[in-house]
Simulated scan of single mutants.
Amino acid sequence: MPCLQRSSPGGTTGIGRATAELLHARGYQVAVTGQNPESVSRARSELPGDVLVVRSDGRVLSDTEALMSAVSARSDRWTCSSSTPGSSVRHRLPR
């Protein structure tokens, strides 16, 4: 069952990573994001190979678009999303 675990910041460390590991252990397809290149690299080497790890800043629209492209390439159906509380960004969409 695909599950997008998106935690900005911190999907590659701490509670976000622990949540991703738990969901993966329960059979979910998981993707995590992080901003710190070192923690992203560490997560790529330490998490199971089928966990998608993407360097992404949720405040940057182009990063979010790249994340969605990477996720969509893995699966056309994601059933849940998790995000760090207190993180929100406004983007003006073209008309």
Rank of each mutant, 00 (worst) to 15 (best):
A25C: 10
N36T: 15
D50Y: 15
S72F: 06
S41K: 15
V51L: 09
S56C: 12
L61E: 09
Q35L: 11
E65V: 14
R26V: 03
L52F: 00
T13M: 09
A43N: 04
R59M: 05
V54Q: 00
P48L: 15
Q35H: 06
H24V: 08
V32P: 04
R26G: 14
E65N: 09
N36M: 13
A70R: 08
A70T: 02
L52Q: 00
V53C: 07
R59A: 15
I15T: 10
D57F: 07
G34S: 10
S69W: 05
A66N: 07
T12C: 10
T12D: 14
G49D: 12
E38P: 06
D50H: 15
S45D: 11
G14P: 03
G14L: 11
L61S: 07
Q35Y: 04
G49A: 15
P37T: 02
V60Q: 06
V40A: 02
I15M: 04
S41A: 15
G16D: 03
Q29T: 14
A66Q: 08
D63C: 07
Q35W: 06
L67M: 08
M68L: 14
S69Q: 12
L47T: 04
G49Q: 12
T64D: 08
V71A: 07
I15S: 03
Y28F: 15
Y28K: 11
L47M: 10
Q35C: 10
G10Q: 09
G11L: 09
E65A: 14
T19C: 06
S39M: 14
D57K: 10
L23Y: 01
L52N: 00
A31Y: 00
P48K: 14
V40Q: 02
R55D: 01
H24C: 05
A43R: 04
S45K: 12
S69I: 07
T13E: 13
G27H: 07
V32T: 11
T64M: 13
S41R: 14
G58H: 12
L47N: 05
V30E: 04
E21P: 05
H24T: 11
V71W: 02
V40H: 03
V30Y: 04
A25L: 13
G14N: 13
T13Y: 09
P37F: 06
I15E: 09
E21L: 14
A73W: 02
A31V: 12
A73N: 02
R55I: 00
S72W: 04
